[in-house]
Design a binder for these strands. Structure first.
Length: 185
DNA sequence: CGATTTTGACCGGCGC
DNA sequence: GCGCCGGTCAAAATCG
């Protein structure tokens, strides 16, 4: 296959690497909108990794069908309406990131294993499904490119990692991005 | 040789 | 009930 691992002036390690926040525990960079009204899920702390990609990354809300951009919010992957089944009503929050990039492989520091690829309606590019290859970590993500702007890649994360990042990418960019994040609020 | 990608089959939900 | 659709599985192929 083709692997492009060029571009990106700042790719210090040969393979595309992006800054990632390494501590995702209590440091919620983003954390919610308003106080949570109920026992909801608002604790969405996506301290995220992907926030630190390219300067032109923006967040998008999946569920609110509208807003042009803001930042991803939790969307519950609804478990069907009638499914009571107790269990965990863990709705999986999903976060989408739109990134201006030439490559789809946005390495955020975790190891991903691709488990599927499907063509998307209305889009000439396929969508790829990845899963975090960490034991017990069910974080998933999908990557798709827009037909409209083939320069844009939408990455959607689902779930949160509960383990440390594989690659230590705490560098200048990370910090830089963190700053951007904080100041934009 | 183990890990990961590829790719078509398979599956559950939903609309008709 | 049937077929479409988005998502996942799994076996074979590839990569390193």
């Amino acid at each position: 296959m083709e692997k492009f691992q060029m571009l990106f002036p700042f790719s210090s390690t040969g393979s595309p690497s992006y800054p990632v926040s390494s501590t995702m525990t209590n440091s919620h960079v983003f954390n919610n909108f308003q106080g949570d009204t109920s026992n909801g899920f608002l604790g969405l702390k996506m301290d995220n990794q992907a926030a630190a990609l390219l300067p032109r990354t923006e967040f998008k809300d999946l569920n609110s069908s509208s807003q042009s951009a803001s930042f991803a919010s939790g969307s519950e992957t609804e478990l069907k309406p009638g499914k009571k089944k107790g269990e965990k009503k863990i709705r999986k929050p999903r976060y989408a990131f739109q990134t201006r990039s030439q490559v789809d492989i946005l390495d955020d520091g975790y190891r991903w294993r691709k488990y599927g690829q499907k063509a998307v309606k209305n889009n000439k590019f396929p969508r790829s499904y990845y899963r975090c290859t960490h034991q017990g970590c069910n974080v998933k993500k999908q990557v798709q490119r827009l037909t409209k702007d083939e320069g844009i890649v939408v990455t959607t994360y689902e779930g949160m990692h509960t383990h440390p990042i594989d690659r230590q990418t705490d560098n200048f960019e990370h910090i830089l991005n963190q700053m951007q994040i904080y100041t934009s609020f």
